[in-house]
């Protein structure tokens, strides 16, 4: 089995004369979940569009070894004239899978994501926002991607739905060993879901901090997430990046640190935990 990687090296990008990205380097390996965190307007979406080929690379390089990358956008982006089922199956139709097979696959996956047969016959405008997001998620996952690029796809949903959809996504990620590059400005989300957090700052968009989360994803409970997020918020770079005022450090006594700051030169994933090495 090969181990594909996404390698971004010294990437820079400008729109007309404004530089939006400068010197971005990181690597994403198969099965790894990496979160790009930063304030709005720091070039996260631009970076994602460079990775999925919607924008052409101007400077630096992106080597994408994944055979089957898909993107999940911020909005569901469903075709309004196709039923939910037609929208889901579209990703397989694009690959020339025959109708009977792609429809059957769409129905199977949709059921796992909580879409009934009834919902599948509806047009997008007849579905609620949560249902539309499920359809978009199903469309992205149907071709069994090995790399998933997420542009805050559930940002507009309420916290219950968001948690549910992320749990579904996590299950499928674990089953299939997909690599995930997720964009978010929500630190808690990043802490809950990712193995590694890349912190970005704006003007120009650049990576100013790298953090590894050693705790296996399945063993993260709410308390751990809150504690780690709080810890992350104590970091100077994080506060600077989001423009937060300085704070006094309050590391709870007697508790070991849950995250480790990586040196800027470390582009690759750190060992998850000592026991797994």
């Amino acid at each position: 089995m090969s181990h594909p990687r996404l390698e971004v090296r010294q990437l820079a990008h400008s729109f007309v004369r404004t530089q939006v990205l400068a010197d971005i380097s990181f690597t994403l390996s198969a099965g790894e979940v990496c979160a790009l965190v930063g304030p709005s307007g720091c070039g996260k979406t631009t970076l994602l569009h460079l990775c999925n080929g919607l924008l052409d690379v101007q400077d630096g390089g992106i080597a994408n070894g994944f055979a089957n990358p898909v993107t999940l956008f911020q909005q569901p982006r469903l075709l309004p004239w196709k039923t939910a089922q037609g929208n889901i199956a579209l990703s397989l139709k694009a690959r020339g899978v025959p109708r009977a097979r792609r429809e059957a696959a769409a129905i199977r996956l949709a059921a796992r994501l909580g879409l009934s047969r009834d919902d599948l016959d509806k047009f997008p405008r007849q579905l609620s926002g949560g249902m539309q997001s499920r359809v978009a998620l199903a469309r992205a996952l149907l071709p069994e991607p090995d790399l998933l690029l997420l542009d805050e796809p559930f940002a507009a949903l309420d916290i219950g739905l968001k948690t549910e959809l992320y749990a579904l996504l996590q299950q499928l990620q674990a089953e299939r060993g997909m690599a995930v590059l997720m964009i978010t400005h929500d630190l808690m989300e990043a802490v809950r879901l990712s193995d590694r957090i890349l912190l970005m700052a704006a003007e120009p968009g650049r990576i100013v901090g790298r953090f590894a989360l050693a705790q296996p994803r399945a063993q993260r409970d709410d308390a751990w997430v809150y504690r780690t997020t709080a810890e992350l918020l104590q970091e100077r770079v994080v506060r600077d990046s989001f423009g937060l005022p300085d704070a006094v450090a309050v590391q709870p006594a007697g508790q070991p640190a849950t995250l480790s700051v990586l040196p800027d030169s470390s582009l690759d994933a750190p060992p998850r935990s000592p026991s797994r090495c």
């Binding site: 999925n52 919607l54 898909v70 956008f73 982006r77 990703s91 694009a94 690959r95 469309r139």
Partner: peptide
Amino acid sequence: GQLREMARTLHLPPHL
């Protein structure tokens, strides 16, 4: 334009 981008990332062939 968003739908066009979506279709591009799905690599929809020209006739589709």
